[in-house]
Design a protein around this nucleic acid. Structure first.
Lengths: 134, 134
DNA sequence: TGTCGTTATTCCCCAAGAAACATATCGGAT
DNA sequence: ATCCGATATGTTTCTTGGGGAATAACGACA
């Protein structure tokens, strides 16, 4: 029989949100949206991929564009491309800083995370009874 | 009105939440509650200090006690002391690990945080728009 | 046996926020 | 002049997490 648990290396996910002094905040939601806008070139497509309504995605973009000194996303309507959105250099910089913060935390606190994981209740393997939701 | 820029260096607050593979999570809410239970020796008192209802505080305690292998909080009813709650050794360990994770992040990503702060829109002194999103 | 403050638990209710729906607009291409 | 797909924004409907009130149990002690 296999050794011990630890079957899951680092399935633990971190969600880090920054609350700035001016009241604005930035976290994984905006970061992921930014990432997907950069990938897809469209607010709508990015929102769809994240399972959020266009309205919500647009609202987040609007907030991001006003909370920073320069807009993170530039959008255009109509035209040959039928509109779209691109992440500005500032946007990429914000994203890069945030991702680095995330990575730093994961690597810099690996010990603490493992320590917490080790204290968790063992997963109930029961495959017969699945009425529980939690 | 260059009355000021970033007078307060570290007003930016971090909120780190861990999502474990078993579906449970731990973040600043539970950590703060744990801290105050340790201080006050009472779930109710801790909840009051945090501005949350007893029901909510108790619910968080209950979740914490079941998500870890050993309870983080032990409580008693009645008696000479009229009941109360104490944080177990495991509880203190969890708290310590989480606080260290927080501190590590703050110190280990000071550059990134400062970088993001530097990109924020300057605070407009006069009119205050208390709107906010995610 | 009654008092006391805290833990434990249920039920009802509500507002904040998300979802859903509905338009309006843009502008190059055909 | 029209089509198209995406942006932009308002209006309505729905969901849900938490608050609040109410209630019970607990147990040492006087």
């Amino acid at each position: 029989m296999p050794t011990k648990l630890h079957a899951t290396p680092h399935a633990t996910r971190l969600r880090i949100r920054l609350y700035f002094s001016n009241g604005s905040m930035f976290g994984p939601g905006k970061a992921d949206l930014l990432t997907l806008i950069s990938e897809t070139g469209s607010i709508a497509a990015a929102g769809r991929r994240l399972g959020m309504s266009y309205k919500r995605a647009w609202g987040l973009v609007d907030t991001m564009n006003t909370m920073f000194a320069e807009p993170l996303v530039e959008s255009s309507r109509g035209g040959a491309s039928h509109g779209g959105a691109t992440v500005t250099a500032t946007g990429e910089r914000v994203l890069s800083l945030y991702r680095r913060l995330e990575a730093n935390t994961r690597s810099g606190s690996a010990r603490e995370i493992e320590g917490l994981e080790g204290l968790l209740a063992p997963v109930i393997a029961a495959s017969t009874d699945m009425s529980d939701g939690n």
